[in-house]
C-alpha cells in the first residue's frame, strides 16, 4: 500500500468520472442533443434568411452552450452526494480543491468539449464563414471551462436542495454573462473584419481567474453543504 500522490489523485478522479460516464452514455448524449436542438430551433423561430442567421449565429450557439452546460450541472456532485462518495472525498488526505478541480475538468470533458466539437457543424447551418467558425471554436474552447467552473460553485451550493436544478441556473447564469459577452464578441469582431485577439485574451484572463478561484470556493461550498 503506497501513498497516492496529488497528481495520482487528480488522475483517479478524472478517470473515475469518465469511466462512470462511459457506463451511462445516455447522460452525455442528452446534453449534446439538447444543444443541437436548441440551436436548430432558432431558424425555425425567426425565419431562414441567411443574412440574419449569419448575424445571430454566435449568440445563438453561445446561449445554447450556456443552457446545456446548466443542464448537466445537477449531475456534477449530486450522485456522489447521494451515495456517500462525497463524504469520502471530503476526508481525502489531499487538498479538496485539487479533487474538485479534477471533477470540474471531467465535467468539462463530458459536457463542454462535445459542444466545442459540435459547434462548427451547427455554425454551418447558419452559414458562418470559415474564419468566424475557427474563432467560434477558440472562444468556446476558452469559455466553456469557465462555465463548468462557475457552475461547480452553484452546484456545490445547491447540493441536496429541493428544486436545486432550477435554483442552480438562477445563481449561475448571471455570473456567466461576461463569458457570454466576450465569447460572442470575439466572433462578431472577426465577422466585422476586426481582430478577435482582445476578446479572446479577455476570455483567457477569465479562464485563469476562474482556475485560481473557483476550485477553492467550490471546496468551501461543498464543506458548507455537507455540514
Amino acid at each position: 500500500m503506497n501513498k497516492l500522490s496529488l497528481f495520482g489523485l487528480l488522475r483517479l478522479v478524472i478517470g473515475r468520472d469518465l469511466m462512470l460516464a462511459m457506463r451511462r452514455r445516455a447522460d452525455v448524449l442528452t446534453t449534446l442533443i439538447f444543444f443541437v436542438m436548441v440551436v436548430s430551433l432558432f431558424p425555425l423561430g425567426v425565419g431562414p434568411e441567411l443574412d440574419m442567421l449569419r448575424k445571430m449565429a454566435p449568440g445563438v450557439v453561445w446561449v445554447a452552450a450556456l443552457l446545456s452546460s446548466m443542464l448537466s450541472l445537477g449531475r456534477m456532485f449530486s450522485a456522489d452526494y447521494l451515495d456517500g462518495t462525497l463524504e469520502q472525498m471530503l476526508l481525502a488526505p489531499q487538498s479538496l480543491s485539487v479533487l474538485v478541480l479534477g471533477k470540474i475538468l471531467a465535467h468539462w470533458m463530458l459536457s463542454g468539449l462535445p459542444l466545442v466539437l459540435m459547434a462548427p457543424v451547427l455554425g454551418l447551418q447558419f452559414d458562418m464563414p470559415v474564419q468566424a467558425l475557427w474563432v467560434l471554436i477558440a472562444s468556446l474552447l476558452l469559455g466553456t471551462p469557465v462555465l463548468s467552473m462557475i457552475g461547480a460553485v452553484g452546484a456545490a451550493l445547491t447540493l441536496g436542495l429541493r428544486g436545486g436544478g432550477v435554483l442552480v441556473s438562477l445563481l449561475v447564469l448571471p455570473l456567466c454573462i461576461p463569458v457570454l459577452i466576450f465569447g460572442t464578441g470575439a466572433v462578431e469582431a472577426v465577422s466585422s473584419g476586426m481582430s478577435a485577439v482582445s476578446h479572446l485574451s479577455l476570455l483567457g484572463a477569465l479562464l485563469l481567474l476562474a482556475l485560481v478561484l473557483t476550485p477553492w470556493v467550490t471546496a468551501q461550498a461543498l464543506r458548507i453543504s455537507m455540514e
Binding site: 500500500m1 503506497n2 501513498k3 497516492l4 495520482g8 489523485l9 483517479l12 473515475r16 462518495t85 469520502q88 472525498m89 476526508l91 481525502a92 488526505p93 489531499q94 479533487l99
Partner: peptide, 9 residues
C-alpha cells in the same frame, strides 16, 4: 477508488 480517495494506491 475508495482507497485512492483515502490516499492509498
Amino acid at each position: 477508488i475508495s482507497a485512492g480517495l483515502a490516499g492509498w494506491a
